[in-house]
Simulated assay, not measured.
Amino acid sequence: MFGGKAAPGYYMAKLIIKLINSVGHVVNRDPDMHDRLKVVFIPDYNVTNSQFVYPAADLSEQISTAGFEASGTGNMKFSMNGALTIGTLDGANIEIRQEAGAENFFLFGLTADQVLELKAKGYRPLDYYESNPELKAVLDWINSGHFSDGDCDLFKPLTDKLLQQDPFMLLADYQAYIDCQSRVSDAYRDYEQWTRMSILNSARMGKFSSDRSIRDYSQQIWHTSSVQVELSEYDQADAMLKIE
């Protein structure tokens, strides 16, 4: 299940959305995939739509490249609702892993330091393409026109970007992600283990409450103190009514 949106002028992001839906068109019509796998894209993903996704999710994919701080609050909401996380050491993933416990988090990928080190040495994505037969087959399949009604050029801007530049180092993290997904599958087959990990994720997410966040902002950034507010009987009754 994918969710997202792209600005009107963001060509590459719109092409990614097109690829997701094109893959879904092929997979969802394949009789061998019936009742086994579906690809779903939620359009115009926002806070309102996400309320239906968080409670239903088993696995939260937080796979941004380490050091880019692209993993924000969505992963917290997934964890609070019992979803386990597969992710990199990026953004809030780091704190979620600390709170939930490393054993209850599916970690993969380069660290931020390793990303910088690889870039300094001269990152060459073609090396990963040429040395990994499965990865090569995936990108070649996309370029074959299989997902675009025979149009071999439609998704070429995406694959060319990956093979020539790959600014987010996706090819470097590819095999680690695939291997980690195998660990996810093994854990999911163990119902009791998965349930335990899910409960612990929910139970240990208290740190991410808005109350704690505001208190930290007040003390560490704004350097302000709390103020006691006396509520009238009318205000208290109104507040209770809203809670109910």
Results as ranks from 00 to 15, higher is better:
Asp140Tyr: 01
Ile199Val: 13
Asp216Gln: 06
Glu117Ser: 12
Ala176His: 15
Ser144Ile: 07
Asp151Trp: 04
Ser218Val: 05
Gln114Phe: 02
Asp216Tyr: 04
Ser202Cys: 12
Asp149Thr: 07
Gln175Lys: 15
Gln181Ala: 07
Gln220Val: 04
Lys156Gln: 11
Ser131Ala: 14
Glu130Ile: 04
Ile199Arg: 09
Leu154Asn: 02
Lys207Asp: 06
Leu200Gln: 11
Arg183Met: 07
Ser202Val: 00
Ser182Val: 11
Gln219His: 09
Asn201Phe: 00
Trp141Arg: 13
Asp160His: 13
Lys121Gln: 11
Gln114Pro: 02
Pro167Cys: 11
Lys207Arg: 11
Gln228Phe: 11
Cys152Asp: 01
Ile214Ser: 11
Val115Leu: 11
Ser182Ala: 14
Asp160Phe: 05
Met197Phe: 07
Lys207Ala: 02
Glu134Ile: 12
Asn132Arg: 08
Glu130His: 07
Ser131Arg: 14
Lys119Asn: 09
Tyr123Arg: 04
Phe168Gly: 01
Tyr123Lys: 02
Arg204Ala: 01
Ser218Asp: 08
Phe155Trp: 05
Tyr217Glu: 03
Tyr174Asn: 06
Ala203Met: 06
Asp190Arg: 10
Trp194His: 10
Ala203Tyr: 04
Asn132Lys: 02
Lys161Gln: 10
His223Cys: 09
Gln175Asn: 15
Trp141Gln: 14
Tyr128Gln: 01
Asn132Gln: 10
Ser144Pro: 04
Leu200Ser: 08
Ile178Cys: 14
Lys119Tyr: 02
Met205Thr: 02
Leu154Arg: 07
Ala203Phe: 01
Gln228Val: 09
Asp216Ala: 10
Leu171Gln: 11
Leu158Val: 02
Gly145Gln: 00
Lys136Asp: 01
Tyr174Arg: 01
Trp194Lys: 08
Asn132Phe: 00
Val184Ile: 12
Ser144Trp: 02
Leu162Asn: 04
Asp127His: 10
Lys161Thr: 12
Trp141His: 14
Tyr129Ser: 03
Leu139Ala: 01
Ile214Ala: 10
Ser182Cys: 08
Leu171Met: 15
Ala203Leu: 09
Asp160Trp: 08
Arg183Pro: 00
Arg124Phe: 07
Pro125Gln: 06
Tyr177His: 15
Gln181Arg: 10
Arg212Asp: 09
Ser213Ile: 06
Asp113Tyr: 00
Lys121Asn: 05
Asn143Leu: 14
Ser131Glu: 13
Asp190Phe: 05
Asp151His: 06
Cys180Asn: 12
Ile142Arg: 01
Leu135Asn: 06
Lys121Pro: 00
His223Ser: 09
Asp127Gln: 11
Ile142Tyr: 01
Leu116Asn: 13
Pro157Phe: 04
Leu200Thr: 09
Tyr188Cys: 03
Ile178Trp: 12
Leu139Glu: 01
Asp190Val: 03
Tyr129Ala: 02
Ile142Thr: 02
Trp194Arg: 08
Arg183His: 12
Arg215His: 11
Arg189Gly: 14
Arg124Trp: 01
Lys121Met: 06
Trp194Tyr: 13
Ser226Ile: 08
Cys180Gly: 07
Asp160Pro: 07
Tyr177Met: 14
Leu162Phe: 13
Ala137Met: 12
Gly206Trp: 00
Ser210Ala: 06
Asp140Trp: 04
Asp151Phe: 03
Asp166Arg: 08
Ser218Pro: 03
Leu154Cys: 07
Asp173Ser: 12
Gln165Arg: 15
Thr224Glu: 03
Tyr123His: 09
Gln219Pro: 00
Arg183Asp: 10
Pro167Asn: 09
Ala172Tyr: 05
Asp190Ile: 03
Asp190Leu: 05
Gln175Trp: 14
